[in-house]
Design a protein around this nucleic acid. Structure first.
Length: 566
RNA sequence: GUUGCUGUAGCUCAGUAGGAUAGAGCAACAGCCUUCUAAGCUGUGGGUCGGACGUUCGAAUCGUCUCAGCAACACCA
């Protein structure tokens, strides 16, 4: 497709005989495919040639037709537009043969060869519940991780755990008091959270608790053996529980280096900033004043302790040294935009302007309660990620049984249920807020995960019934409207993946895979694949296979598995 | 108050490096299963693209102003 576009651009340039006209920028894709595959509007030429755009279009059309362009089937002049139709034989053969020869590798490219991308995502705070609001960073981050990997980048998934801070002084204090009342081994996070909530409440009444908590944290920082042991225990048990959820979602991390990991790496940050003489004192704290932001970035609090920003800066330096990243992507809520703007600007002093340019904040909207207000921990506690996933699986199971499907129920229900939840989360632009609505997440009709999976299952089913792929295919037999539109959509994949990566926007892929599924469903309804005519059957089988490869591959990048049957 | 994000059909959203009659899904209604899985397909109705002004041959898209919702605004992370 891109080759044909280039041929068209070159020929327009040739016909115009005017180097100043930026043909590449004017050429566009018509809204409706019935108007062609490429269009060249002539409005802007009107002022150059001092003639009406319609006349120009007509004249260009005649000159271009005479050229007999390779790969271009038909050219039309409609009003001020010249519309080009790609030669369907050429397109079909190119696309189909490429997918047939590459198979699942059709999704892969070497765009990012030799480059490393760090992706900081999920990053739960151990003493806070891992509720449905945290699902977004996990799912969006995982999708970006898979996407960049498919594009040939070396990817490093980092779970920057919130495993440090005064809050652990509180948790340790609470644990010392009530350890017998909680079952840390089976429900670590739930126990830690309720201990934290309980001790915080107590601290409000009894100031001595605050003192003890501070003391505990100080001991932790100083490496007191008993305290560190407790802290490690909390951390390990929590990670174990997180991993259970990550396993359900089939997500892995290359690093669990959290905040604590940078504990001994922050002095260097302060030193560097001091050396560069950008650290100034303000109300007892040490800050860096910024050019782009009014609010300065605080590096040291007035009591001398470090901040969130200091830790993030230490992480930037460490990751640069350890991974030598091209990009370091942070997938967090939009409410942290200012924080990252500050950190990124200060990072210029630490790792240099060029490296800092590779720091990217990928924000997303909030998960709201049904009242349209921010999801509170109190309400969120009732909607844990596992609870939602389990309900989704349960509903899939019921549907499978109700429809009397002859499939491995448990395995299939898992893929469908979890797929539905992930798909729902990745369907819209990430920046939009999302009202948490379980019914909405568990819709199985329309633009949903199960719909796309179902479409894949249909491709699979046809291939199985036909007894596999043919060795010889004459793709030029694919001439129906439904066939050609599907082929062109499949040919789009490479550009779509690039766009999704450039915009850090998984929803671009989600939308795309819906379109592929819809076009396949139309084809499925209009064109019988298993027909008498062997050659036609083979050509259609190849198209069915190609569709299946694309759907399964794109869903895979999104973190969704495809059942073979459903 | 300052800055940022969002505002498109009854609902959830695409479309925003300006371009041809503004597109899907859901919901409503009407059709399509003796033929590859109906979690599907086809059709109907539904819109002052929050508002105003401006730039342009052309604006949902760009600019200015304005309204509404939300978020952030240093010693939480």
């Amino acid at each position: 497709m891109d080759e044909i576009k280039k041929i068209i651009i070159d020929s327009i340039k040739k016909v115009l005989e005017n180097d100043e006209i930026q043909v590449e920028e004017y050429i566009e894709k018509p809204k409706d495919s019935s108007m062609g595959d490429f269009a060249f509007p002539c409005f802007k030429l009107a002022s150059v040639y001092k003639r009406s755009p319609m006349e120009i279009a007509k004249e260009l059309y005649e000159k271009l037709t005479a050229l007999n362009l390779e790969g271009v089937g038909k050219i039309e002049a409609v009003g001020a537009y010249i519309n080009f139709f790609a030669d369907s034989n050429v397109i079909a053969s190119q696309v189909i043969s490429k997918v047939l020869s590459k198979g699942e590798e059709y999704l892969k490219s070497d765009l990012g060869k030799g480059k490393t991308v760090c992706i900081d995502y999920s990053s739960p705070n151990i003493a806070k519940p891992f509720h449905i609001g945290h699902l977004r960073t996990t799912i969006i981050g995982a999708a970006l991780y898979n996407l960049y990997k498919a594009l040939g980048y070396r990817t490093v998934g980092i779970n920057h755990l919130g495993d440090y801070g005064t809050q652990f002084g509180y948790v340790i204090e609470g644990y010392k008091r009530w350890k017998d009342e909680y079952d840390l081994d089976t429900e670590p996070i739930k126990s830690l959270v309720s201990i934290y909530v309980r001790i915080s409440a107590l601290a409000k009444e009894d100031e001595s608790v605050i003192e003890l908590a501070r003391e505990n944290f100080a001991k932790l920082e100083q490496g007191d053996k008993e305290t560190v042991e407790l802290w490690s225990k909390f951390r390990e048990l929590s990670i174990k529980e997180y991993k259970r959820i990550y396993e359900k979602l089939d997500i892995e991390f290359d690093s669990y280096n959290g905040e604590a990991f940078y504990n001994d790496k922050m002095d260097e940050i302060v030193d560097i900033l001091e050396q560069k003489q950008v650290l100034t004192e303000s109300e007892g704290a040490k800050v860096v004043n910024l050019k782009k932001e009014k609010v300065p970035c605080m590096i040291l609090k007035s009591n001398g302790s470090t901040t969130y920003a200091t830790r993030d800066l230490a992480a930037v330096l460490f990751r640069k040294r350890e991974y030598d990243f091209e990009k370091c992507i942070y997938v967090t809520g939009g409410e942290q935009m200012l924080h990252f703007k500050q950190v990124f600007e200060v990072a210029e002093h630490i790792v240099g302007k060029d490296v800092a340019q590779g720091l990217v904040h990928v924000p997303f909207g909030m998960v709201l309660g049904s009242d349209g207000k921010k999801f509170s921990t109190r309400k969120g506690a009732s909607a844990t990620i596992e609870g939602v996933l389990d309900e989704a699986i349960e509903k899939s199971r019921e549907t499978l049984i109700q429809k009397g499907k002859d499939v491995e129920i448990e395995e299939t229900a898992k893929k469908i249920g979890i797929g539905a939840v992930i798909f729902n989360d990745l369907k819209n632009s990430r920046i939009k807020d999302e009202v948490f609505d379980l019914d909405d997440m568990l819709k199985f009709e329309g633009e949903t995960g199960p719909y796309v999976q179902y479409t894949f299952v249909r491709t699979n089913s046809i291939l199985e019934k036909a007894g596999g792929l043919p060795s010889q295919v004459n793709a030029s037999l694919l001439k129906e409207k439904e066939e050609l539109e599907l082929i062109k959509k499949i040919a789009d994949l490479e550009n779509v993946m690039k766009q999704a990566a450039e915009e850090y926007e998984p929803s671009v892929l989600t939308r795309y895979v819906i379109e592929v599924a819809t076009l396949f469903s139309k084809f499925y309804n209009e064109c019988q694949v298993i027909v008498e005519d062997e050659e036609l059957k083979n050509a259609r089988l190849a198209l069915v296979y190609s569709t299946g490869v694309v759907i399964k591959g794109v869903l895979g990048i999104l973190g969704i598995k495809c059942p073979d049957k459903m």
